[in-house]
């Protein structure tokens, strides 16, 4: 990419939402600094506190409505939709289903891009508005819970923005025209070839090949996907030790067979590395959404409790 494409989102309509967001942040900071609240201590219950709270709530509801509306319209995972919209790499791996004509209409109109640009900048503005709303009074209560959840949502969004700006390019560099399924198929083919070659070789070689086939892991649980590595990878181990086991072969056909096997395992190692990298980049690209969206829902409920509590015990 694509930085140019990504930055087009940030530069949308000559930084319209950056200007709106920055304006709100500067204005609220200036008013906060010059305001002298009754009691001398700023908090959410002063006129400025209530104003900041109401504005923050409205922005938050708008941002959440964006998430709900987008999901109901597109039915596709968020990042891929963004990537597709931006013409980013990796999008060709996404299934084609779920893209309704409504979505295409939105894409054509640029509304989605506008919403997303607004989502990013207005979300950042909450960092300042909500913090000033608290008056820096934090405690073990539902009010601080709502604030902390909001900060978590915002910072997970920062991660998402960074991921969205960088990982699609890395995915393209890593995968080229291949897909993960292609790589896994190739790896399976190489495993078959290697096992066939190894049958006629020594037990030690067979053990290496068998462990490479059976215990090489691509993917796995969350941490394994995010790390993109396997500790003591059997394939890499096999590559490193295979040739040292061939010293006692005196027949040419056996030596040739060992070299062939080495070549197969070497190709497999590179494919495994690419597959793991693909899974790692995708996982890192998507993982933030497993926090951003659920924490957003939790935030909504905490915000509701926060507002109800304030007015219930007025």
């Amino acid at each position: 990419m694509n930085n140019m494409q990504g930055s087009s989102l940030l530069k949308y309509k000559n930084y319209r939402y950056l200007k709106v967001s920055a304006g709100m942040m500067v204005l609220s900071i200036v008013v906060y600094l010059f305001n002298e609240p009754v009691g001398g201590h700023p908090f959410g219950g002063t006129w400025l506190g209530y104003t900041l709270g109401v504005v923050s709530t409205l922005i938050l509801l708008g941002l959440m409505w964006y998430g709900v509306a987008k999901r109901s319209i597109t039915g596709t995972p968020d990042w891929s939709m963004i990537a597709e919209h931006e013409g980013m790499a990796g999008s060709h791996q996404r299934p084609a289903h779920g893209k309704s004509s409504v979505n295409k209409g939105l894409r054509g109109s640029g509304m989605l891009q506008e919403w997303l640009s607004g989502h990013i900048y207005l979300g950042i503005s909450l960092l300042v508005l909500a913090t000033l709303h608290t008056g820096f009074h934090l405690g073990w209560n539902v009010h601080t819970l709502a604030y902390v959840l909001m900060m978590l949502v915002i910072f997970s969004g920062f991660y998402g923005l960074n991921a969205y700006l960088n990982y699609p390019r890395l995915i393209t560099l890593n995968m080229g025209e291949d897909t993960l399924d292609d790589l896994l198929l190739k790896i399976a083919e190489l495993d078959e070839l290697a096992t066939a070659r190894a049958l006629d070789l020594s037990d030690e070689v067979n053990v290496l090949v068998m462990e490479s086939c059976q215990e090489t892991r691509v993917g796995g649980n969350l941490l394994q996907q995010l790390s993109g590595t396997q500790r003591d990878c059997p394939t890499r181990f096999a590559v490193q030790h295979l040739m040292t086991l061939g010293g006692h072969y005196i027949r040419d056909d056996q030596r040739k067979m060992l070299r062939d096997l080495y070549s197969l395992l070497l190709r497999k190692e590179k494919l495994v590395l690419r597959a793991r990298t693909e899974i790692m980049l995708k996982a890192r690209l998507e993982c933030w959404l497993y926090l951003h969206a659920p924490l957003g829902i939790a935030l909504f409920s905490a915000l509701a409790a926060h507002i109800i509590s304030i007015f219930f015990y007025w």
């Binding site: 892991r217 993917g219 995708k282 996982a283 998507e286 497993y290």
Partner: peptide, 20 residues
């Protein structure tokens, strides 16, 4: 190898909606 090991986060079976 393939077939049993999850190769993406969706395959882990986590639901953002349920979590949220």
């Amino acid at each position: 190898m393939q077939g049993h090991v999850p190769v993406n986060l969706a395959a882990l079976g986590w639901s953002k909606r349920k979590f949220g």
